[in-house]
Design a binder for these strands. Structure first.
Length: 889
DNA sequence: GATGCACCG
DNA sequence: CCAGGCGGTGCATCC
């Protein structure tokens, strides 16, 4: 099927210019925007595989819009010369790409694109519009997808009408109504003052269009109604200005836009001229780009010599083992404890050959040397996702040792926010020969199926090859980022520590759980009955929608806040509504118990392994953006503790050996101690050096009172301020948390900062650093990129600023406990202890301990945890033990 | 598959 | 003028 990709040239080059750091060639010409444009084009060609292409530009100064409104785009800054000089470079580059370009005096790129998409709609042809400008969304249709740049220019979000509706609740034609109401500062479109995106969307969801809003304006109360009536004319005109003109005469004919891919040598020459060396290196000009238009222009897969290993070929493989450089173990299924191991692919760079060993062959008697090789700590191996493979193989009695590099773990450290850590994306990023996506090979969801052997073998061997090619590049990048030690000394060894913990598992008493579940069930039935009586009807209490109808329509309770789908019924709202009606308290209790029943009783029961009588969680090491672990199947990092009712769940977690104990040790105030260290704040440091109660100390300093004058309420407020500080404080956030006014919250914060001046300086500095470098780091050089730190959108920018403040704190705390875990595992082994490390809950470690080791563990666990790293303030660990997790408080 | 809600640090 | 706490997972509902 034919497909046109049309790029809004001006919009994209602007985006690229501001998204990328300045970059000049040896002649002093700026090239950053062209560079960004180039990477975007390469990606587009590869992903969209267009048969037709066009880049449209604005032309001339006066467009027809100025005839109606002289100030159109009036307030806009002049194009900086560093950008203007790049337009001719871009146009040359497009010629090298062989991509048609078009501009027409008196019209903007929008109008050209609008006209082309109208024609495509009429003729039923597919178009993707690429732009950074939300206005373009009005063009979305059955045939037209609008791809908007997101997060710089490297990624796009594709909008068809359905997605548009999901995001904004609007039809494409309503986008101009949206602009009509909210205006657009960058185009000097006024809109209605005081109406931003949120209000505009609310109005449109209610009235549908600018005209309808205006005609009903008399019915809109308050300041809002006043503004709308006052600025009716502005709104009408703004809507008109935002409307893309779709009748540009003489746009190019469809056939003239045919695109058969670029010509390798011409493009190579152009990139060399621009001095885009890194891009040239990454690109593979040998295979693809043949210009036949069939494959698109992306580098094609090279042919690859793959041997499916059977009994007859095992000998050859075993002989080749010393030359194996990288491998891939395919374990399918989300939960590694239940994953199916399909087989092992091995790659030998010398011969360029791949070997695929199906699991049955691997498990056969003749494959013993291969299994020994896998288990040999002295034969170095490289792979993707060591942690998962190690767990999946262990359940089959197959040890895996000697893995020296894990491409997945490295990719996570290089960019922990990157969600696409799969191999297909990594090879693309590094410009290496392509690997198909797992989704393409296996399908997904209900359609998941293992392909025929030859296809499977080819795919998995290509993965092994990719690991081999990626390893040196990623090692170099880790080195450049100062993360070499973080990888080799911490994260890599941790993977195996985690595997051991998970395979050990924690004994979970199913009978206890079932008994508790029966009690819950009885109470839930009673409460449900009572709720129905109060409501005067039966309904599904679990449905926020139905619950909302009962509370707000039937019983007439006031709406406190709204979600995007209706009035909110969350616990915070219900607390406020409690005085109005008895039913509210019952709903809160119902929610609490229903949660315990579904997630903790039923959910946990499903996860108990019948063979071991334990639950075996899986810690994910490559998910959290801050460097924390997360836990799945089941999540053992969110077992209830705050309310007594739920805390009882902890009684079902027991030692797996009779007479043993559950032993817990947690860091006290680790995040604030970390903050004291990295900010160097004198008073905070002093507080910890004297081992004071930090919230009381904060209350003393903020309220200016002595220790015995601090009451419970003052301490509670100080505690909230401390939390706020760690999270990247805002007066709004604190006011919500403490249920006080924003002003009062702002006063608290000011008071706090005037006392803890070092903290204030840290907060200011870290945001500056993020803006300058584009990322922040933890104590161990873990890195998180914050591209939105310079966004013009307040929300995005503020979020990035809070993240800049929080990530070094949360991330350093994560570094520290990870260090402690690796050291703890070594220590247990070195001392020949039987005690086992079972769980990690962010600032807490859980062990099972035989009675005769209890005293030893009381000594060494705090010793190891407190000594994991040396900070300017002491680390403090509190330990406890009991016959189950509940008792080890 | 998205959303709202609830659980944890 | 507007919008907003940091990091996660799991369940039930609804489309």
């Amino acid at each position: 099927m034919e497909k046109l990709v049309v790029v809004d040239g001006n919009s994209i080059i602007y985006r690229a210019f501001f998204a990328l750091p300045p970059l000049t060639n040896s002649a002093g010409l700026h090239t950053n925007a062209v560079y960004g444009f180039t990477t975007m084009l390469l990606r587009l060609i590869e992903e969209e595989k267009p048969t037709h292409m066009l880049v449209a530009f604005d032309a001339g100064k006066a467009t027809f819009r100025h005839e109606g409104y002289a100030e159109y785009k009036g307030g806009r800054e002049k194009t900086p010369p560093e950008l203007s000089e790049q337009f001719p470079l871009l146009k040359d580059l497009l010629r090298a790409f062989g991509i048609p370009q078009y501009e027409k005096s008196g019209y903007e790129a929008d109008d050209i694109i609008g006209t082309l998409t109208r024609i495509a709609d009429e003729k039923g042809m597919r178009v993707t519009v690429v732009s950074g400008d939300k206005d373009m969304l009005q063009l979305a249709s059955e045939h037209v997808t609008v791809a908007l740049t997101r997060k710089g220019i490297s990624e796009v979000e594709r909008y068809d009408p359905a997605h548009l509706h999901e995001v904004y609740g609007l039809k494409p034609h309503q986008i101009i109504d949206l602009k009509g109401l909210m205006g657009d500062a960058s185009d000097n479109i006024p809109g209605i003052p005081g109406v931003g995106e949120k209000t505009a969307l609310k109005l449109l969801h209610e009235y549908g269009s600018v005209e309808e809003v205006l005609s009903q304006a008399d019915g809109i109360k308050g300041k809002m109604g006043e503004k709308i009536r006052e600025h009716a004319e502005d709104a009408r005109m703004s809507k008109k200005l935002a409307t893309i003109f779709r009748e540009v005469p003489e746009v190019p004919e469809w056939d003239g836009l045919a695109y058969g891919g670029y010509d390798g040598p011409s493009l190579q020459a152009a990139l060399r001229k621009l001095e885009f060396k890194s891009l040239l290196e990454k690109m593979d000009f040998s295979g693809g780009a043949d210009g036949d238009g069939e494959e698109g222009a992306a580098p094609a897969q090279e042919s690859f010599d793959v041997a499916v290993v059977d009994d007859a070929k095992l000998g050859e493989l075993i002989e080749a083992l010393p030359a194996v450089d990288a491998m891939h173990i395919e374990a399918v299924g989300e939960n590694p404890h239940h994953a199916d191991v399909l087989g092992v692919a091995l790659y030998v760079p010398e011969s360029g050959r791949g070997y695929y060993v199906p699991y049955d062959v691997l498990a056969s008697e003749a494959a013993a040397p291969l299994r020994d090789w896998l288990a040999d700590a002295e034969t170095p191996k490289r792979m993707y996702d060591l942690h998962k493979a190690e767990v999946a193989l262990a359940w089959r009695g197959l040890p895996l040792r000697g893995v020296r590099f894990d491409v997945l773990l490295a990719a996570y450290l290089l960019d922990p926010t990157e969600s696409a850590l799969a191999l297909d994306g990594l090879v693309r990023k590094y410009g290496l020969p392509q690997v198909a996506s797992d989704e393409d090979v296996f399908g997904k969801g209900a359609k998941f199926a293992v392909p025929e052997l030859a296809r499977l073998a080819d795919h998995l061997c290509r993965k092994a090859q990719a690991v081999s090619l990626l390893t040196p590049l990623m090692e170099r990048d880790l080195e450049e980022g100062g993360m070499h030690r973080l990888y080799y000394d911490l994260e890599h060894p941790l993977a195996s520590v985690l595997s051991t913990m998970e395979l050990t598992g924690i004994r979970t008493d199913g009978d206890d759980l079932r008994t508790y579940g029966e009690q819950l069930a009885a109470r839930l039935t009673d409460i449900m009955q009572s709720i129905y009586e109060h409501a005067g009807m039966e309904f599904n209490i679990n449905s926020p929608k139905q619950l909302g109808e009962v509370l707000f329509d039937k019983l007439g309770l006031p709406v406190w806040k709204k979600t995007k789908t209706g009035p909110s019924t969350d616990a915070e709202v219900l607390e406020k509504l409690a005085p109005y009606h008895e039913i509210v308290k019952e709903i809160l209790l119902y929610r609490q118990l229903a949660k315990l029943q579904s997630t903790y009783v039923e959910g946990l029961l499903k996860e108990i392994n019948p063979k071991t009588g334990k639950v075996h969680t899986y810690y994910r090491q490559t998910i959290a953006a801050t460097g924390r672990l997360s836990s799945q199947f089941p999540n053992l990092q969110n077992i209830p503790i705050r309310l007594e009712e739920g805390r009882k769940i902890r009684q079902v977690f027991k030692p797996s050996e009779p007479g043993w104990y559950i032993f817990t040790a947690d860091y006290s105030q680790i995040e604030l101690r970390v903050l004291a260290h990295i900010s160097g704040d004198e008073r905070l440091r002093e507080a910890f050096l004297n081992d004071m109660d930090i919230h009381t100390k904060t209350a003393m300093d903020v309220f200016g009172v002595s220790a015995n004058q601090v009451d419970a309420n003052m301490r509670r407020q100080a505690k909230a301020v401390n939390f706020g500080i760690v999270y990247g404080i805002s007066d709004y956030g604190l006011s919500q948390n403490l249920d006080i006014t924003r002003k009062e919250a702002a006063n608290f914060i000011e008071q706090y900062f005037s006392v803890f001046q070092g903290v204030r300086k840290y907060m200011d500095d870290i945001v500056q650093t993020a803006r300058k470098d584009g990322f922040v780091t933890t104590l161990l050089q873990r890195r998180r990129y914050l591209p939105e730190i310079s966004a013009s959108n307040f929300n995005l920018r503020s979020f990035a600023e809070r993240t800049a403040m929080n990530t070094p704190i949360q991330g350093t705390a994560a570094d520290i406990i990870k260090l402690a875990m690796v050291q703890m595992a070594e220590r247990l082994k070195a001392e020949g202890l039987q005690s086992r490390m079972l769980l990690q809950v962010h600032d807490e470690l859980v062990f099972e301990v035989p009675p005769d080791e209890l005293e030893t563990m009381k000594r060494i666990v705090p010793e190891v945890m407190e000594g994991a790293i040396q900070l300017d303030v002491p680390l403090k660990v509190e330990a406890d033990y009991g016959t189950n997790w509940y008792e080890a408080k």
